[in-house]
Design a protein around this nucleic acid. Structure first.
Length: 216
DNA sequence: AACCAGGAGACAT
DNA sequence: ATGTCTCATGGT
Protein backbone atom coordinates (compact mmCIF):
# COMPACT_ATOMS: atom_id res chain seq x y z
CA UNK A 1 0.00 0.00 0.00
CA UNK A 2 1.06 3.56 0.55
CA UNK A 3 0.70 4.20 -3.12
CA UNK A 4 0.55 7.91 -2.40
CA UNK A 5 3.63 8.07 -0.23
CA UNK A 6 5.71 10.99 -1.36
CA UNK A 7 9.48 10.65 -0.89
CA UNK A 8 10.69 12.75 2.01
CA UNK A 9 13.10 14.67 -0.17
CA UNK A 10 10.18 15.70 -2.33
CA UNK A 11 8.11 16.61 0.74
CA UNK A 12 10.98 18.80 1.79
CA UNK A 13 11.17 20.47 -1.60
CA UNK A 14 7.48 21.33 -1.39
CA UNK A 15 7.90 22.78 2.09
CA UNK A 16 10.98 24.82 1.17
CA UNK A 17 9.14 26.38 -1.73
CA UNK A 18 6.17 27.28 0.47
CA UNK A 19 8.32 28.46 3.37
CA UNK A 20 11.36 30.33 2.08
CA UNK A 21 13.12 30.86 5.39
CA UNK A 22 12.68 29.28 8.81
CA UNK A 23 15.95 30.81 9.99
CA UNK A 24 18.06 29.04 12.55
CA UNK A 25 15.07 27.24 13.76
CA UNK A 26 15.91 26.01 17.24
CA UNK A 27 17.30 29.07 18.97
CA UNK A 28 19.68 28.46 21.80
CA UNK A 29 23.04 29.91 22.69
CA UNK A 30 24.34 26.82 24.41
CA UNK A 31 23.71 23.11 24.41
CA UNK A 32 22.32 23.32 27.91
CA UNK A 33 19.87 26.00 26.86
CA UNK A 34 18.55 23.69 24.16
CA UNK A 35 17.86 21.00 26.76
CA UNK A 36 16.03 23.49 28.93
CA UNK A 37 13.97 24.70 25.99
CA UNK A 38 13.12 21.14 25.01
CA UNK A 39 11.57 20.52 28.43
CA UNK A 40 9.84 23.87 28.65
CA UNK A 41 8.19 23.55 25.24
CA UNK A 42 6.26 20.43 26.16
CA UNK A 43 2.63 21.03 25.24
CA UNK A 44 3.30 24.76 25.11
CA UNK A 45 3.94 27.40 22.47
CA UNK A 46 7.47 28.64 21.86
CA UNK A 47 6.41 32.23 22.55
CA UNK A 48 5.64 31.23 26.11
CA UNK A 49 8.90 29.31 26.37
CA UNK A 50 10.87 32.40 25.39
CA UNK A 51 9.42 34.33 28.28
CA UNK A 52 10.44 31.59 30.67
CA UNK A 53 13.93 31.38 29.16
CA UNK A 54 14.35 35.15 29.47
CA UNK A 55 13.34 35.00 33.13
CA UNK A 56 15.89 32.26 33.78
CA UNK A 57 18.56 34.19 31.91
CA UNK A 58 17.98 37.37 33.90
CA UNK A 59 18.28 35.37 37.12
CA UNK A 60 21.54 33.87 35.88
CA UNK A 61 20.04 30.40 35.99
CA UNK A 62 20.63 29.42 32.38
CA UNK A 63 23.71 27.41 33.17
CA UNK A 64 23.82 23.96 34.75
CA UNK A 65 25.66 24.77 37.96
CA UNK A 66 23.40 27.68 38.87
CA UNK A 67 20.22 25.85 37.99
CA UNK A 68 21.22 22.78 39.97
CA UNK A 69 21.68 24.96 43.06
CA UNK A 70 18.43 26.89 42.64
CA UNK A 71 15.31 25.92 44.56
CA UNK A 72 12.36 24.38 42.81
CA UNK A 73 10.19 27.31 43.85
CA UNK A 74 12.54 29.92 42.42
CA UNK A 75 12.76 28.00 39.17
CA UNK A 76 8.99 27.60 39.17
CA UNK A 77 8.45 31.35 39.50
CA UNK A 78 10.73 32.01 36.55
CA UNK A 79 9.17 29.46 34.23
CA UNK A 80 5.57 30.16 35.14
CA UNK A 81 4.69 31.65 31.71
CA UNK A 82 5.35 28.33 30.02
CA UNK A 83 2.89 26.42 32.15
CA UNK A 84 3.10 23.30 34.36
CA UNK A 85 5.58 25.15 36.53
CA UNK A 86 5.71 22.64 39.39
CA UNK A 87 6.19 19.69 37.06
CA UNK A 88 8.65 21.38 34.74
CA UNK A 89 10.77 22.76 37.59
CA UNK A 90 11.20 19.19 38.75
CA UNK A 91 11.99 18.03 35.20
CA UNK A 92 14.55 20.81 34.76
CA UNK A 93 16.43 19.76 37.86
CA UNK A 94 16.46 16.19 36.60
CA UNK A 95 17.79 17.04 33.14
CA UNK A 96 20.35 19.36 34.73
CA UNK A 97 21.68 16.51 36.86
CA UNK A 98 21.88 14.36 33.75
CA UNK A 99 23.74 17.10 31.86
CA UNK A 100 26.30 17.56 34.60
CA UNK A 101 26.87 13.82 34.77
CA UNK A 102 26.78 12.78 31.12
CA UNK A 103 27.29 15.69 28.75
CA UNK A 104 31.02 15.08 28.61
CA UNK A 105 30.62 11.43 27.72
CA UNK A 106 27.73 11.98 25.31
CA UNK A 107 30.00 12.26 22.30
CA UNK A 108 31.33 8.78 22.92
CA UNK A 109 27.83 7.29 22.90
CA UNK A 110 26.18 6.10 19.71
CA UNK A 111 22.70 7.36 18.87
CA UNK A 112 20.85 4.51 20.55
CA UNK A 113 22.90 4.75 23.74
CA UNK A 114 22.44 8.48 24.01
CA UNK A 115 18.72 8.18 23.37
CA UNK A 116 18.32 5.48 26.03
CA UNK A 117 20.30 7.55 28.49
CA UNK A 118 18.05 10.56 27.90
CA UNK A 119 14.88 8.49 28.17
CA UNK A 120 16.00 7.48 31.64
CA UNK A 121 15.63 11.07 32.82
CA UNK A 122 12.39 12.04 34.49
CA UNK A 123 10.45 14.37 32.21
CA UNK A 124 12.18 13.24 29.02
CA UNK A 125 9.88 11.21 26.79
CA UNK A 126 10.29 10.12 23.18
CA UNK A 127 9.75 13.50 21.61
CA UNK A 128 11.84 15.51 24.02
CA UNK A 129 14.64 12.96 23.69
CA UNK A 130 14.56 13.34 19.92
CA UNK A 131 14.57 17.14 20.13
CA UNK A 132 17.69 16.93 22.26
CA UNK A 133 19.35 14.30 20.08
CA UNK A 134 18.87 16.37 16.97
CA UNK A 135 19.36 19.94 18.10
CA UNK A 136 21.75 19.61 21.04
CA UNK A 137 23.87 16.67 19.92
CA UNK A 138 23.54 16.77 16.15
CA UNK A 139 22.21 13.26 15.68
CA UNK A 140 20.05 12.72 12.58
CA UNK A 141 16.56 11.96 13.84
CA UNK A 142 13.04 12.46 12.61
CA UNK A 143 10.84 14.08 15.26
CA UNK A 144 7.40 12.58 15.12
CA UNK A 145 5.44 15.22 17.00
CA UNK A 146 1.88 16.36 16.48
CA UNK A 147 2.93 18.45 13.47
CA UNK A 148 4.89 15.58 11.99
CA UNK A 149 1.90 13.27 12.25
CA UNK A 150 -0.37 15.64 10.36
CA UNK A 151 2.19 16.27 7.67
CA UNK A 152 2.91 12.60 7.08
CA UNK A 153 -0.75 11.87 6.79
CA UNK A 154 -1.17 14.70 4.30
CA UNK A 155 1.85 13.50 2.32
CA UNK A 156 0.41 10.02 1.94
CA UNK A 157 2.53 8.23 4.53
CA UNK A 158 -0.56 6.95 6.28
CA UNK A 159 -1.09 6.80 10.01
CA UNK A 160 1.03 5.17 12.65
CA UNK A 161 -0.38 4.21 16.01
CA UNK A 162 2.68 4.71 18.12
CA UNK A 163 5.57 7.13 18.19
CA UNK A 164 8.09 4.31 17.95
CA UNK A 165 6.42 2.76 14.92
CA UNK A 166 6.33 6.03 13.05
CA UNK A 167 9.84 6.99 14.02
CA UNK A 168 11.24 3.72 12.78
CA UNK A 169 9.41 3.95 9.46
CA UNK A 170 10.32 7.57 8.85
CA UNK A 171 13.88 7.31 10.08
CA UNK A 172 14.76 4.39 7.89
CA UNK A 173 13.06 5.95 4.87
CA UNK A 174 14.82 9.25 5.40
CA UNK A 175 18.13 7.58 6.08
CA UNK A 176 17.84 5.67 2.83
CA UNK A 177 17.30 8.99 1.10
CA UNK A 178 20.56 10.17 2.58
CA UNK A 179 19.58 13.15 4.73
CA UNK A 180 22.32 15.06 6.48
CA UNK A 181 21.95 16.21 10.08
CA UNK A 182 21.39 19.75 8.83
CA UNK A 183 18.57 18.53 6.61
CA UNK A 184 16.94 16.69 9.49
CA UNK A 185 17.03 19.88 11.51
CA UNK A 186 15.65 21.97 8.69
CA UNK A 187 12.94 19.42 7.98
CA UNK A 188 11.52 19.56 11.47
CA UNK A 189 11.60 23.34 11.45
CA UNK A 190 9.78 23.42 8.13
CA UNK A 191 7.17 20.97 9.39
CA UNK A 192 6.40 23.02 12.48
CA UNK A 193 6.14 26.24 10.52
CA UNK A 194 4.00 24.51 7.90
CA UNK A 195 1.74 23.24 10.68
CA UNK A 196 1.12 26.78 11.84
CA UNK A 197 0.48 27.97 8.30
CA UNK A 198 -1.80 25.03 7.65
CA UNK A 199 -3.93 25.86 10.64
CA UNK A 200 -4.22 29.48 9.58
CA UNK A 201 -5.21 28.29 6.12
CA UNK A 202 -7.97 26.05 7.44
CA UNK A 203 -6.19 22.73 7.91
CA UNK A 204 -3.87 20.41 6.03
CA UNK A 205 -6.72 19.31 3.79
CA UNK A 206 -6.66 22.62 1.97
CA UNK A 207 -3.10 23.73 2.74
CA UNK A 208 -1.17 20.70 1.48
CA UNK A 209 -2.78 20.44 -1.98
CA UNK A 210 -2.25 24.16 -2.34
CA UNK A 211 1.50 24.15 -1.70
CA UNK A 212 2.00 20.95 -3.70
CA UNK A 213 0.10 22.42 -6.62
CA UNK A 214 2.02 25.67 -6.40
CA UNK A 215 5.06 24.02 -7.91
CA UNK A 216 3.34 21.81 -10.45
C1' DA B 1 -15.80 30.67 26.23
C1' DA B 2 -14.20 26.38 24.66
C1' DC B 3 -10.09 24.88 22.69
C1' DC B 4 -5.28 24.10 21.87
C1' DA B 5 -0.05 24.71 22.36
C1' DG B 6 6.76 22.10 19.32
C1' DG B 7 4.24 16.09 26.19
C1' DA B 8 5.11 13.09 30.03
C1' DG B 9 3.91 10.21 33.96
C1' DA B 10 0.69 7.61 36.90
C1' DC B 11 -2.72 4.47 36.82
C1' DA B 12 -6.43 1.36 35.24
C1' DT B 13 -7.71 -1.84 31.84
C1' DA C 1 0.17 -2.91 25.06
C1' DT C 2 -3.56 0.74 24.89
C1' DG C 3 -6.78 4.51 26.93
C1' DT C 4 -7.76 8.29 30.40
C1' DC C 5 -6.45 11.86 33.84
C1' DT C 6 -3.68 15.46 35.49
C1' DC C 7 -0.58 19.11 35.22
C1' DA C 8 -0.97 25.34 34.22
C1' DT C 9 -0.50 29.36 31.45
C1' DG C 10 -1.55 32.24 27.35
C1' DG C 11 -3.47 33.12 23.12
C1' DT C 12 -7.44 32.56 19.69
Amino acid sequence: MNAGRMPMRQVMAVLRRAIPDVGKWWPGESRFEILVGAVLTQNTTWVSVEKALDNLRVLGLLNPEALRDASQVVIGEAIRPSGYWRTKAEYLLAITDWFLAFDDSAQAMDDAELRASLLGVRGVGEETADDILLYAYGRGTFIYDAYGRRLLEAAGWGEYRTYKQARMACDSAIRSEGFSVEEYGLLHGLIVQAGKDARAAGGWGVYWPRIVGAGA
